[in-house]
Computed example of a mutant assay.
Amino acid sequence: MARLNDRYRHHGAVAVLEHALRDADLGRISLVSSFGAESVVLLHLISVMAPALPVLFIDTQMLFQETLEYQTLLAERLNLTDIRTIRAADAALALDDPDGTLHQFSTDACCALRKTVPLETALSQFDAWITGRKRYQGQTRAEIDFFEEEDNGRRIKINPLAHWGREDLEDYMTENRLPRHPLVARGYPSIGCAPCTSPVKPGEDPRAGRWRGSEKSECGIHFIGGRMVRGPVAAEKEDVK
């Protein structure tokens, strides 16, 4: 990771993504997208550089209807040719969340069932995956770098937009006339599952509406072995309860 980050340290986001897609060290790559509030930026970049790149979309079956409609719109508008919808296995849902109320008792268990486990299964065929995480999105993401090691080097996480701010994203969407997620105008700067996402007030952290009222700030996709990945794996990290 140190070698990769050093190689691209002085590159901008577009150059990092462009080079990463051609870098033999990274192997088989996919993009994981929530088709959320800011997802269109990375999806548009991919549509220009590599429209056939596999795009993994996690449908937790608890998403806002607006997100599902937005996903369909972007897939058609950007001509992304390999979008793969990832869902939890029916047998797992029947066993662990038969009535769809698990999130009321354990958001961690619900996220693991509907997001983390299905994504891990889907990612098993890839050597690296691209995320839309950015440093400005809160303290838990303040130190992320372009490249992170995952699970003792088994896979690489690529964060090309790590250093972008909200203004950069807004400018990019405006300049490229990209459609916005309809919930953004209603006060949702960060969008997850409908039961666990609420509007954000002016001045609040953009992710304040995710799991409001709890200490939870990540769904688990960006945790490894129960520990949050904030920077190079060699760095010391705090346990997250």
Rank of each mutant, 00 (worst) to 15 (best):
S47H: 10
F147P: 05
K201F: 05
T107E: 12
E76K: 15
D23R: 10
E143S: 10
A75Y: 10
S217W: 07
L42I: 01
Y70N: 02
G203Y: 06
T67K: 01
R135Q: 14
A122T: 09
I144K: 03
V55T: 12
F64R: 02
P160W: 03
L53K: 04
G203Q: 11
L42D: 01
E18D: 15
Y8K: 07
I86V: 09
L169V: 14
T60I: 04
R186I: 02
R3Y: 08
K115F: 00
L161H: 00
L4R: 00
N176H: 15
R227D: 07
G132H: 00
L26R: 09
I83T: 11
E218W: 10
D6T: 10
L21F: 08
K157E: 10
L119Q: 05
H222W: 13
A52I: 09
D171F: 14
G213D: 00
S198W: 09
F146S: 10
T121A: 09
A142V: 05
L119A: 12
L74V: 11
A89Y: 03
I58W: 05
L113D: 04
D108G: 05
A208F: 02
F105N: 10
L95I: 05
R180H: 14
I130E: 01
I191Q: 05
M228F: 06
D25Q: 15
P179H: 12
I156G: 04
T101A: 11
G231D: 11
L102D: 01
G187D: 03
Q139K: 08
D97R: 00
A2V: 15
V55A: 06
K134A: 08
T107N: 07
S33R: 01
F35D: 00
D205R: 04
T67F: 01
A208K: 06
H10G: 12
Y136A: 13
D6Y: 08
G220N: 04
L93C: 04
R154L: 13
I191R: 02
G187L: 02
Q71I: 01
